[in-house]
Write a protein that binds this DNA or RNA. Structure first.
Lengths: 201, 201, 201, 201
DNA sequence: GATGAATGAGATTTCATTCAT
DNA sequence: TATGAATGAAATCTCATTCAT
């Protein structure tokens, strides 16, 4: 607490890509404490770099948060939609994506938690926002395709259907995180099936 | 800790006024800027009181946030569930509550926004949390009743059904707030109907 | 005439001399918490008066402290020197005063503690200081008289002798208060006798 | 080459050991204004550092005061008791220490004044208190030794004798500080001799 | 006169950012 | 290039004092 003695500190591990290290550390500590709750020195410590180094790679905390947000949004989009079976029918697709959503939240809870944080909202700039809506548009178009195919109900706009399904997912995860629920795989499956029936009418 | 109640003294209207003014102003500024984003002097300014006055009525910012949270949670519960028609069937009930949810979000956007804020989570104490789960339990029991009546599907636990419906609602409002959607009354109605179908299977 | 609030208010004890009540309460709370450690509302509460009432009787906290200091200094002087036996010899006088010092510290610990407080020093004004030195001067003259009578050693100025004796007393009490000592009556007696021998050489 | 900004910058003197600078400045300003009377920014200014820098070296104002207290208590003990002549008899020892007490108060008046402050008492933690009594115990044992040797009177406990002598010293310095006395070297010598006679009986 | 709610200046402490090394 | 000690603006909270009732 008192003298910051250099001697007692453990040797700093060699880091090849400091930028990546900072971003990964940011994900961890922000997921834990929220963006507002984590001072830069704490983040630097976790990343194994000096405080000043953060500012060699990012112009400000804001910039770092935005960078991280965009990176993770894109990573999420990839996890959800890349390598989907081209022959799969709508239901198989829907179920596959639903499952991937939960896999993501379970396997990379820091990334998921960070994306769902609200307290970075004032930090988000236009670039981050427009990326967000671009990704959404793709999914909305798929939903629209399902409507054209006669699979999804047509009396509700596709972006509304998507909002309902996404909200259901988000709230399931949140309820589990808050301790109101515990979700088995069977729960996830039947919840996905229920969302499907919501879309098909 | 909060109201300086001198034993059994009847509350003086002047006191209630400032206290209420502070709470209402807090709702406004927190909804706008988040709990972390609003310094006490700004809140005091909006409430039309001095900085120190806040601390006459609330022991700390934490205490104020918790008080506000509980107050609004209870107000929300009242708005959603009080004076429901006793003769209404399950569907009418469901639709009525669904409509009330949107009415609340529309008519008192500050209160709704504040309740949905995530950045007050670290502020919430046990009393606030337990209130939260108590309110939830009531709704879950209603859902369970619908299952027993054979109205809702029984293969999904009622708390999961509720989580899906609530998440759908929250995300619709959030999407609209973020500018991704604009919801007409017809949209709200059909979305409600879709959530109903999700519950009935 | 009849304010209805009187009925519901906690019964405030009738106070004839609010000024005296304030001073006595000040002695208590300052002795307990130091001058800096006690907010005016706490003092008002203890005195059984309203906060504002303090300022009807004293211009400021400073003024109150000074008033209290002078009052207690005078009271102390009276306790120590009034009604001393006119026929008593120097030793009897010395022992009597020594005993009265301890009686004062034991019987009115709040007053003694307050007088010994250091943290009111910045508060003390010229009037308080000059009173202090006027009282001292009287005792110094008595010591000088003892020297002239050949009772006290003459190679040390009387004010120095007094300073030694008074310091011994103060530190005995302080040591006891801090838990380093416990003083029996025999201890007090022999300590007084030792101080006497210090003065006589 | 020559950056003209150097000239316009606030000319802050270079400080090698900021921690030491802070402690020394604290001694100065606390001695002057008391612990309660000095805000951290004032202390920082005097130390020639920024406000925040204080908190790099000390967890809180409390911690700083305690650190300073212990540091100075130890320094005082060293000044009083280190390198005492091993061949000196009891009287020479007593006189030497008595002289050192006054040297300390004269040569480092800030340190002496700080140690005598009462308003840091609420700040002191257990570590500081136990250090205090440990130091005392050593001196008490020396006094006890003198009693065993037949030099000091045995009818008074050694801790009481010490309390009398220490109180005499403290009050002499205080009287001088408050302007009631001016002490020549001869005064100090004879006062010391008087205290010796107090101990020997 | 008496009150105590209200005030805001000022205290302690935090943390995003800079810059000398 | 990398660092982390240093910074000071800004946040939370306190309390001597005022003034409407």
């Amino acid at each position: 607490m008192n003298t910051p003695t250099h001697l007692s500190r453990p040797p700093r591990p060699r880091i090849k890509d400091k930028r990546a290290a900072i971003l990964r550390a940011a994900l961890e500590v922000f997921a834990e404490g929220g963006v507002n709750g984590v001072p830069i020195p704490v983040l630097a410590d976790r990343a194994g770099v000096g405080t000043g180094t953060i500012y060699r790679y990012f112009a400000s905390k804001d910039a770092l948060v935005n960078e991280l947000f965009r990176e993770q949004r894109i990573a999420l989009a990839k996890r959800l939609f890349v390598d989907l079976s081209p022959n799969a029918g709508p239901y198989e697709l829907f179920v596959e994506v639903w499952q991937r959503m939960f896999d993501f939240a379970r396997q990379d809870p820091d990334a998921y938690r960070f994306l769902e944080l609200q307290d970075h909202r004032p930090y988000l700039d236009d670039a981050s926002r427009s990326l967000d809506s671009k990704l959404l548009r793709n999914i909305v178009m798929t939903y629209h395709g399902f409507q054209v195919q006669g699979v999804f109900r047509k009396d509700i706009r596709p972006e509304i259907l998507l909002s309902l399904v996404w909200g259901s997912f988000v709230n399931l995860i949140r309820s589990e995180r808050d301790g109101y629920l515990a979700l088995s795989q069977a729960d996830i499956d039947s919840a996905g099936e229920a969302c499907w029936s919501l879309c098909t009418g």
